[in-house]
């Protein structure tokens, strides 16, 4: 589109060399212009994200310990061999699956219900919307601490409520019980994540043309029929993308766990992402941490590709 204009100048090429040079440089700057705009972002992302990513992958094959000046040599696959026998890592893999799907199932279903509720006109909707989306704005470290406090029988009400309901014999902190501890961060994560699904699904709901529902009503469709044959198909693409993105984000999301339990008690809440952080931060063993990170990256890539392949297969089957 931008290339159209200079063509008309081709006729004066022989006559006025100066003008030709002007056209040429203008044309060159026209070609270069987009790159001026995008270069700051590209430079920054390459320097701070892409290069470290590549460097991190290379660390996975090296012995890198920050406090050890003799480290740095190649160790080949030693880290990965160690990983295969690292029971803490294998436990973290299972915990990651549990953490991700436990959080996601509730975030999504409650977020969908909330979006459907907010999609109706009612008194005070704007205010309600601002209030129910608020947890999303709460800094994660604070959500984590706050929920940890809520579960603490000294200052939190939750253990006392559970005792009154007969679910607990005496008020105790579920975060210190290896069997139950994972529920703490999961509940905090549900609280934090409902607004994301509610916001995206609400926007998708609002983009459904109202005439569709009117036409369906004229044809005598019931509310349930309209929901199944109009709402769900319209939401499906948004649901597919947000579910996939959120799965990956939650699997990577170590903040709540680091703040609430630090992976404990007895590694019962350690997920792969928090394990990477523990290895890098506390043991300063960057080589091993990077090997774990590489495995996590491969698993998430495999998951994403699997989901995309599945979707493609399904859309092909439809058409």
């Amino acid at each position: 589109m931008d290339g159209n204009k200079p063509v008309t100048n081709m006729t004066d090429v022989g006559k006025r060399p100066a003008a030709r040079r002007g056209v040429f440089s203008r044309r060159l700057s026209g070609i270069l212009e987009p790159y001026y705009y995008v270069s700051p972002a590209v430079v920054l992302i390459v320097a701070v994200m892409l290069m470290p990513l590549i460097l991190g992958l290379s660390y996975a094959f090296r012995d890198i310990r920050i406090l050890n000046p003799f480290s740095g040599g190649f160790v080949g696959l030693a880290h990965f061999q160690a990983l295969a026998h690292d029971s803490a890592f294998l436990g973290a893999l299972i915990n990651t699956a549990w953490w991700t799907f436990g959080s996601l199932a509730f975030q999504f279903s409650l977020g969908l219900v909330l979006a459907l509720l907010l999609n109706r006109q009612f008194l005070g909707r704007r205010l309600i919307q601002a209030l129910v989306f608020l947890p999303w704005a709460v800094p994660t470290f604070l959500s984590g601490l706050n929920w940890a406090w809520m579960f603490n029988p000294v200052v939190g009400p939750l253990p006392h409520w559970l005792t009154s309901l007969g679910l607990m014999d005496t008020p105790f902190n579920i975060l210190s019980d290896p069997d139950l501890a994972m529920w703490g961060p999961i509940i905090a994560n549900i609280w934090f994540g409902i607004p994301f699904f509610a916001i995206t699904l609400l926007a998708a709901l609002q983009s459904i043309p109202g005439e569709l529902y009117e036409a369906a009503s004229i044809d005598g469709a019931t509310t349930r029929q309209k929901f199944i044959s109009i709402t769900i198909p319209f939401l499906a693409p948004t649901i597919a993308i947000t579910l996939m993105l959120r799965t990956i984000w939650i699997a990577n999301f170590a903040d709540l766990i680091v703040v609430m339990t630090k992976g404990g008690p007895a590694d019962s809440t350690q997920i792969v992402a928090s394990y990477i952080f523990t290895q890098a931060f506390r043991r300063l063993d960057f080589g091993y941490a990077s090997a774990i990170a590489a495995v996590l990256l491969v698993l998430l890539l495999a998951y994403a590709l699997g989901v995309i392949a599945l979707r493609r297969a399904m859309t092909h089957a439809d058409s």
Binding site: V38, M51, L55, L245, N252, L300
Partner: peptide, 26 residues
């Protein structure tokens, strides 16, 4: 353009925790 867009999309997917060690070293 496609390469740059793809690069940006991919950065949204990979675990940022794995950048902690290399970024510290850089």
């Amino acid at each position: 353009k496609i390469v740059i867009v793809a690069l940006m999309l991919i950065t949204q997917m990979f675990p940022l925790v794995m950048l902690i060690a290399p970024i510290f070293r850089i």
